[in-house]
């Protein structure tokens, strides 16, 4: 039961973290320069954008839940279960970020999810 709880936190906090990072980086603007001064100003804007900070916070929560899950369960159980994050992320991208997720992207993320599951089974 504890494992299910921690895996759920890993998956949902990780997915929410990714979604917030994506949202934050769209607010920062496209990184399209190699000018050092401009890159520094973009880096500053990145670390002062609330969505990016929230994203990093949630990724940290996912990371510590991973450590907690690994301390009570084997890697071979925990890792495959987290593959479902690929599909959760795509659902979040479609409905929260309003991205144009076409059939190819749905199929692609489903294949990656299944593949990541099989690859991590030991």
């Amino acid at each position: 039961m504890k494992t299910v709880f921690f895996v759920a936190i890993i998956v949902f906090a990780g997915a929410f973290g990714d979604i917030m990072l994506s949202r934050g980086m769209k607010q920062v603007g496209e990184v399209n320069t190699l000018n050092v001064y401009k890159l520094f100003s973009m880096a500053w804007r990145t670390i002062t954008t609330p969505a990016v900070l929230i994203g990093i916070g949630f990724m940290a929560i996912a990371f510590f839940s991973l450590l907690a899950a690994l301390s009570i369960e084997k890697v071979s159980i925990v890792e495959p279960a987290t593959a479902v994050a690929y599909v959760i992320n795509t659902i979040g991208a479609k409905f929260y970020l309003k991205e144009e997720v076409d059939n190819a992207r749905w199929m692609g993320s489903l294949f990656v999810c299944l593949g990541a599951f099989l690859l991590s089974v030991k």
Binding site: D18, I19, L21, S22, M25, K26, V28, G29, E30, V31, N32, T46, V52, Y86, N89, T90, G92, A93, K94, L97, E99, E100, V101, R105, G108, S109, V112
Partner: peptide
């Protein structure tokens, strides 16, 4: 990854 997310959709970058 942050640079990629600034340029492209999450549903592309993730997979």
């Amino acid at each position: 990854n942050l640079v990629l997310l600034s340029k492209a959709d999450l549903s592309y970058v993730m997979p």
